[in-house]
Design a binder for these strands. Structure first.
Lengths: 104, 104
DNA sequence: ATTGTATATCGATTTTTTTCGATATGTCAA
DNA sequence: TTGACATATCGAAAAAAATCGATATACAAT
């Protein structure tokens, strides 16, 4: 997890928004999980299409953003069928906050 | 203090290094404060030239970096004669760490 | 006043990032 | 197996950031 990649990922309003939204997915994505059979639980995960709709950017841009944020370590993804669910990587983000406090 | 400006400022290795160096100025800038009469104390401040020498980038680039970091709130500067001393804005950085922990 | 030094700003070029539409890939359903 | 859909990847154009040398500004010392 390269700090610089994390900071780059955070240097954009839309990406920052996505991170925010995913903090309270049920609040910001009311129809969250619509595609999932209820026995499958992808807690806190939201599919790309829902994020795209809210972010108001093109599909390819949002896909790119999510990939970038995942590579930076901020998000993790789970694929279910044709959908990819993204959620925050809370553990990594917590470590990051520690890093920020002690190293920056 | 706009989070995005802060993250942009942190998205560069040299700038990240500068922030690091200024955490322990006496360690990384042995000849620190050489220009200052001892009754003037700019605690933790290092002049642009010293930073430039260590950063190995051009004078204009380093000046630009420092200005950017100051605008982002990470640094503060004091001018003494022909020198500008930059030091960390510890209070702002501390607040930032709090922001990171609670908002990111 | 003139010269030298430190830093800031300007202008231009190169590099990186953003952003998109088009296309490819993978999955589901009929 | 065909068609529809979700997402990923590709390739390109536009926008922004990095970076430099040259020049300006501000101060110091002679």
């Amino acid at each position: 997890m390269e700090p610089i990649d994390v900071f780059k990922a955070l240097s954009n309003e839309t990406r920052l928004n996505i991170l925010h939204w995913l903090k309270e997915p049920e609040k910001h994505f009311p129809k969250q999980g619509a595609h999932l059979p209820k026995e499958v639980s992808i807690k806190g995960g939201v599919c790309v299409g829902d994020i795209q709709e809210k972010a108001k950017a093109s599909q390819s841009t949002v896909s790119h953003y999510l990939n970038m944020m995942q590579k930076a370590g901020l998000l993790e993804s789970v694929r279910y069928g044709q959908w990819t669910y993204y959620r925050r990587n809370e553990e990594a983000i917590h470590q990051l906050a520690e890093y920020f406090k002690t190293e920056i």
